[in-house]
Design a protein around this nucleic acid. Structure first.
Length: 424
RNA sequence: GGAGAGGUGGCCGAGUGGCUUAAGGCGCACGCUUGGAAAGCGUGUUUAUGAGAAAUCGUAACGGGGGUUCGAAUCCCUUUCUCUCCGCCA
């Protein structure tokens, strides 16, 4: 959510930013916000005056009662009746203005960083880096879902039986490889200075609102109705919400956390060839990195997160590329996002395996995540997060790219975690 | 699931209708004192929002929401969370 002060002072810059996102009716919406804000503030001022008046009278009444001048007190009492009605009326108006204003603010996405290219869809994303050799596979090389069956390491049917589509069962060396990847990612993140945390997989409403999944994206989360809790679609929610309603000191920066969690996504309405096998699941594992930064240093932090993820893919020797997302593809809350895509040789297509973003103050505003700056004033912090990495598609790419006629090789860096060097 | 006790500022903790945005203590900051340090003494120390160049002033906030009252941290209703005991349980 953008701050009102920012909207008031930067209308032109906002309109330019929204144009890059192809946001329709930008000027109308912003004008409405400004208009509502003026209305809200004048109502507020009027209400404050009324309350000030009635506070003053109340104090007088108190004094008069004490000195026994009951009649005088009763006279003043009558006056306060009117004030009370007026303040009730104004309070109602104010809360209507406020909620209408909030509804408008919820519609406005984050303003893109100047680096974000114009564009409508994923076709317009900018490839800024590409690395790693695409292996030449032997004849008869298989997509990962066939490999999974052939070596009996992932059982989609069994998952269907016990839960439904999108909930695979990992077996034997498949399960061990998953565990190895998680341990390896966490170790890499710890080495890079991220503090490992283990978090709840269920979140309450306040947390969902804090990071922006609620109120309008509840359809994408699994909901436990009896207790009104949601299964997390990403560790970003619990970890970022550590800092909800928190006032930090400048010396607390940088804050770097990493968490492994399963993630649950309803993904309603996505079917077809592109969701086969591990490509899109309802439950998957992910290791996440989350940072809270001083606004002056958040873009440095974003670059270092990108470098960090790069390092992992280099060690795994997987072919990947980095995209800078265009305005049309950029997430609602993000100011700048880099996507990592892994080339899946047997499917002959790129798979998204990580998304690293700077949200600037957009999340912090809703979270009320602030710090005391050098001048002693409280100021919104910047939040960033990224995956390092999402497991299923890394696993898919690994199985496909490392397959040989004799079996699937395990990347060297993983072998000490798996305890074996080949799936056969 | 049953019974009970509680949620007050960065922390501890007082406070059952007006003198309480909140005593006292701890912590923190600055100053005095000192050869230096400790101790001691003094001053200051919540957030949000509106007005103002600023000093400052108004308003709101004692878990959340609602009510009673001229006036609520204090009384009533409701909700949520925490703790203790019992039950169940990896």
């Amino acid at each position: 959510m953008l701050t009102l002060a920012f909207i008031r002072e930067n209308k032109d810059a906002i309109l330019k930013g929204l144009a890059i996102r192809n946001f329709a009716n930008a000027e109308k919406t912003i004008d409405k916000v400004i208009e509502k804000d003026i209305l809200r503030r004048s109502t507020q001022a009027e209400l404050d005056e009324t309350l000030a008046e009635s506070n003053k009278l109340s104090k007088e009444i108190g004094k008069l009662f004490k000195s026994g001048e009951v009649q005088k007190a009763n006279l003043i009492k009558e006056k306060t009746g009117q004030l009370k009605e007026r303040s009730k009326d104004l309070t109602e108006k104010l809360s209507i203005h406020e909620s209408e204003l909030n509804e408008l603010l919820y519609l406005i996405p984050n303003i893109p960083n100047p680096l974000v290219p114009k564009g409508n869809s994923e076709e317009d994303n900018e490839t800024i880096f590409e690395e790693g050799d695409i292996p030449k596979l032997h004849d008869g090389a298989l997509p990962h879902w066939e490999l999974a069956k052939k070596y009996d390491i992932i059982d989609f049917e069994l998952g269907n039986k016990i839960t439904g589509a999108g909930f695979p069962v990992y077996k034997g060396k498949g399960a061990k490889l998953q565990r190895a990847l998680i341990a390896y990612f966490l170790d890499k993140n710890s080495e890079a200075g991220y503090n490992e945390v283990q978090v709840p997989l269920l979140i309450n409403e306040a947390s969902g609102i804090g990071t922006g999944q609620l109120p309008d994206k509840e359809g994408q989360m699994y909901h436990c109705g009896i207790d009104n809790l949601y299964l997390i679609p990403t560790a970003e929610i619990p970890v970022t919400n550590f800092y909800r309603d928190v006032l930090l000191k400048e010396s607390d920066f940088p804050i770097c956390n990493t968490a492994y969690t399963p993630c649950f996504r309803r993904e309603a309405g996505s079917y077809g060839a592109h969701v086969r096998g591990l490509n899109r699941l309802h439950q998957f594992d992910k290791v996440e990195i989350v940072r809270i930064e001083h606004p002056d240093r958040s873009y440095e932090a974003l670059d270092s997160m990108v470098d960090h993820v790069k390092g992992i893919l280099q060690e795994l020797k997987l072919p990947y590329r980095i995209l800078r997302l265009c305005g049309g593809d950029l997430g609602f809350t993000s100011a700048l996002t880099y996507d990592f895509e892994l080339f899946s040789t047997a499917q002959d297509r790129w798979l998204e395996i990580s998304s690293v973003s700077n949200f600037e103050t957009f999340q912090a505003n809703r979270l009320k995540l602030r710090f005391k700056n050098a001048a002693g004033k409280s100021q919104l912090a910047h939040t960033l997060n990224g995956s390092s990495l999402a497991l299923p598609r890394v696993l898919a790419g690994l199985l496909e790219n490392y397959q040989t006629e004799d079996g699937i090789n395990i990347p060297e860096v993983l072998q000490k975690y798996t305890g074996f060097d080949m799936i056969d």
